[in-house]
């Protein structure tokens, strides 16, 4: 996983509520497109018109935001389907951080696993950041200091679970970490086979 420390750049404001992962990446892209190529299809239902042409009215298509590494969003961003392809698509499209009032929980977990930082901030703060970003301000998201900064305003602090923060800063592979604890898992399972033998299908007796 690519570590995350600090990024600075334009932030694209997509300030509607309940943006779901189906909207971020369509299902048929998950059966036919390699993971590395999903970025081109990120938000395709918003970015393209029915005839396949780009919709210039879509904020994601504005020249100022095309290379934006930060996405500002309405509450409950990433709700819905568990598809990790939504995170891969965002990363493929150059997004490294999403700032919103709240996130779909599975999306949030998937984000941390892939080096995409979800930052939860109060509604008014996200709205103020969106206003600044719309006016052209570059934002800085600093995971070391746990701050979002604008060129003019006061820095805004945010919280991230310490385990997740450490993993992002160092680019830790959680699976490898868990494998190291296998003796504890084995001991737990040994006890559980006695306590709940009905769980252990085909291993009873």
């Amino acid at each position: 996983m690519t570590p995350f420390t600090t990024i600075t750049g334009p932030a694209v404001p997509l300030m509607r509520a309940n943006v779901d992962t189906d909207l971020i990446i369509r299902i048929e892209r998950l059966t036919g497109t390699p993971r590395e190529s999903l970025g081109a299809f990120c938000f395709e239902a918003l970015r393209f018109r029915a005839d396949g042409s780009e919709d210039p009215a879509c904020v994601l298509n504005r020249p100022a935001f095309r290379q934006a590494p930060i996405l500002l969003a309405g509450p409950n961003f990433g709700c819905g389907s568990s598809r990790e392809g939504a995170v891969w698509a965002l990363i493929g499209a150059g997004i490294r951080c999403v700032i919103a009032e709240s996130f779909g929980e599975i999306f949030e977990a998937n984000s941390f696993r892939n080096g995409l930082l979800p930052v939860a901030l109060p509604r008014e703060v996200v709205a103020a950041l969106a206003q600044a970003a719309s006016a052209g301000a570059a934002l800085t998201v600093d995971l070391v200091a746990r701050q979002v900064r604008t060129p003019s305003g006061e820095p805004t602090g945010f919280t991230v679970p310490p385990l997740r923060r450490a993993a992002l800063l160092e680019g830790v592979d959680e699976l490898a970490q868990a494998l190291k604890r296998d003796p504890e898992v084995a001991a737990w399972q040994m006890r559980d086979r006695k306590a709940r033998p009905w769980i252990w299908l085909g291993e009873e007796g």
Binding site: S82, N110, R113, L175, Q177, R181, V185, Q189
Partner: peptide, 20 residues
Amino acid sequence: FGIGSSELVQALATQVLTLR
């Protein structure tokens, strides 16, 4: 509960997940 692809690989490989 539902999980993503990375968590699914971990669940298969380790039988444990890191959760709050």
